[in-house]
Write a protein that binds this DNA or RNA. Structure first.
Lengths: 203, 203
DNA sequence: CGTGACTTTGACCTTTTGGTCAAATCAAAG
DNA sequence: CTTTGATTTGACCAAAAGGTCAAAGTCACG
C-alpha cells in the first residue's frame, strides 16, 4: 500500500486495469463466484499484486460497485420537468436501452447484487434511489394531472422502464437463444418507443 | 446411496426437504455462493447425509433446476390460439405475475442462472424454449394479421412480459426499497393490464 | 549514478468447502 | 426379536481460495 500521496502513473494504470477486470469477473460470476486469481489474470497482474492495490476482494467489489452507482442513475436524473412529457420519458427509455447495449457488464453486476438481496447496497436504494424516484414520479404525476400523459401508476411506470431495458442486458443469453441470429437491439428501440407511445398518449 | 428400488417413505421426505432447502439457498446465493452446509442446515440434515441422497452439490443444483424448468414454461404453453387475443395475452401476463408473487425463489434461481450466462441450461433455451416461443409468436402474428391485435413485434412482446413480471420477483428488494410500505403486488396487476390493453388494442 | 520510495512476486499460511468413509443407528419384513 | 438393508454421522481428507510477507526488482529524481 503506497502512502497517500497523489497516485503515480503506474497506480492509475493498474487500479483502472483491476477495476475493469473486477467488473468483468464479478458481473459474470457474482461476488462469491469470482476468485481473486480470475480477476488477477483478467487484469494481467499477480494475485499479491492486486492485494497491494486493494486490501481485499471485498474492497475491489465495493470499489466497482460504488463506481457503478455513481453513474447508474444519471439517465433518470436527466429527466427534465420542463420538457415534453412523452418525449422526456421516451428519452429516458432510449438512454437506458443504450446503457444495456453499451454497458451490459454494469447492468449484470447490478442485477447480481439485487437478485441476491442487495446486501451491500440496500442502504443506497432506500435513501438515494428512493429520493430520486420520489422526485421524478412527482414530476410524472404532475404531467398526468395536467392531462399531458395518460393515467398511469408513476412508480410502476419507472419499474417498467427499468425492467424492459435492463432485460436486454441481464437476460441477453436468453433473448439471443430465442431470437436466433437476429440482434435484439435491432428491433428493441422501436418496440419500446411504440409501447410507451401507446401507453402514455393521453385519451 | 440406496439401491434403485422404489423410493422409501424416508427417501421421499428427505429428497423433498433437500430440494426445497437447495432452492432456498441457491436462489438466494447463486450456485457458487451456496455451500452444502447451508443447504444441509436449511434442510435439517447433516452434510454427509445430503451427499448420501445426492452425489454432489452440482447434482442438487441440477435437480432443482430441472424440476423448475419442468413447470416454468407452463403459463406460456397455456396461451390458447382459439381464445380472444387480448384476453389470452392478459391471462398469460396474469399467470406470470402470480408466479412472481407466489414463487419468487424459482424466479430468482432462474434469473441467477441466466444472468451468469446460463452455463447449465443454454441448451434447453435454444431448443425447447425457442421452439415454444416460435410457436406462440406465430399465433400472435396470426392475430395481428387478422387485425385482432395492434401491430407489435411478437418476440419482443413476449420478452416484455417476461421482464415486466419477473422484475417483481427478481428485483423485489429494489422495488420495495423504492415503494416503501406499499406492496408492489397491490398495483402491479392493474398496471400491467392497463399497459397491455393500451398497447395491444387494434387501431 | 545513487538513493529512497514504489512495485512485484514466490512461497507460504489459514480457512473454507466439497467430498469420503467406516462405524453406528434405525426400520421393518419375516 | 432378529436379521438385513437403509439411514445417519463424526472424523477426515484434499483442493480451492483469500490473504500475508520478506525479499527482489523498478522508477524517478536530485
Amino acid at each position: 500500500m503506497p502512502k497517500d500521496r497523489a497516485p503515480t502513473r503506474i497506480q492509475r494504470k493498474n487500479r483502472a486495469a483491476i477495476l475493469d477486470a473486477a467488473l468483468e469477473v464479478f458481473s459474470a460470476q457474482g461476488f462469491r463466484g469470482a476468485t481473486v486469481d480470475q480477476i488477477a489474470s483478467a487484469a494481467g497482474l499477480s494475485k499479491p499484486n492486486l492485494l497491494y492495490y486493494f486490501p481485499s476482494k471485498e474492497a475491489m467489489h465495493e470499489a466497482v460497485l460504488s463506481q457503478l452507482l455513481d453513474t447508474w442513475l444519471d439517465p433518470l436524473r436527466a429527466l427534465d420537468p420542463i420538457g415534453d412529457p412523452i418525449e422526456e420519458i421516451l428519452g429516458y427509455v432510449r438512454r437506458k436501452l443504450e446503457m444495456s447495449r453499451d454497458f451490459p457488464r454494469e447492468s449484470r453486476l447490478f442485477a447480481n447484487e439485487i437478485v441476491q438481496g442487495a446486501p451491500r447496497i440496500h442502504e443506497v436504494l432506500s435513501t438515494d434511489l428512493k429520493a430520486l424516484v420520489d422526485e421524478k414520479t412527482a414530476v410524472i404525476q404532475g404531467w398526468i394531472d395536467e392531462g399531458r400523459l395518460a393515467e398511469v401508476h408513476p412508480y410502476h411506470l419507472i419499474f417498467s422502464i427499468w425492467s424492459l431495458t435492463q432485460h436486454y442486458a441481464d437476460f441477453d443469453v436468453q433473448v439471443r437463444a430465442v431470437l436466433g441470429k437476429e440482434d435484439p437491439f435491432d428491433a428493441a428501440p422501436e418496440f419500446l418507443e411504440t409501447l410507451y407511445r401507446r401507453m402514455l398518449r393521453p385519451a
